[in-house]
Amino acid sequence: MSPLKLKKGSTSHSAYNLRPTFSDVSERHTIAVIVDNEAGVLARVIGLFSGRGYNIESLTVAEVDHEGHLSRITVVTTGTPQVIEQIKAQLGRIVPVHDVRDLTVEGKAVERELALFKVQGTGDKRIEALRLAEIFRANVVDSTLDSFVFEITGDVGKIDAFADLMRPIGLVEMARTGVAALSRGNQ
């Protein structure tokens, strides 16, 4: 039995040894949670993650059904299969939660993130930034004589790659929305 790969604050060093019979391989899951759009509901979800020591890699939330007052929270989290099961069960237990869907289990989901990049520079750097933006289909949404703000959408990997390329060119600031996701297919 190898030790659990859990982050700081976990119980892996406690002699409680709570999870010996489960797989210890960490997985990344995208979970969609449909909730009543009421005061404090986001705090309930976040409080659950912090209170029980789960990870949040990204989180997005917005109202998706104005008449039904329903919001959709998309959480990207990592954990062992047993932790992921617990996260879903614990989310499902929150009273204003209507539905919990593990998009990673349901099949390959469409995942998109929007990001804004501010890139500073003149001369060759400025031209290179524009050229790369074109390759990545990023739009210029603001411009000065020595800077651009690019808007880019894509999956997490694409945005990470764009950031890696822009960094040496003069990336000074970045804002990311976190992942929004839907399952593929007609269901």
């Binding site: 709570l18 617990q86 069960a89 614990q90 499902g92 237990r93």
Partner: peptide
């Protein structure tokens, strides 16, 4: 009756 109790500690 609580799904989060199942497999929480013991498989």
């Amino acid at each position: 009756i609580d799904p989060s109790s199942i497999n929480k500690v013991v498989k």
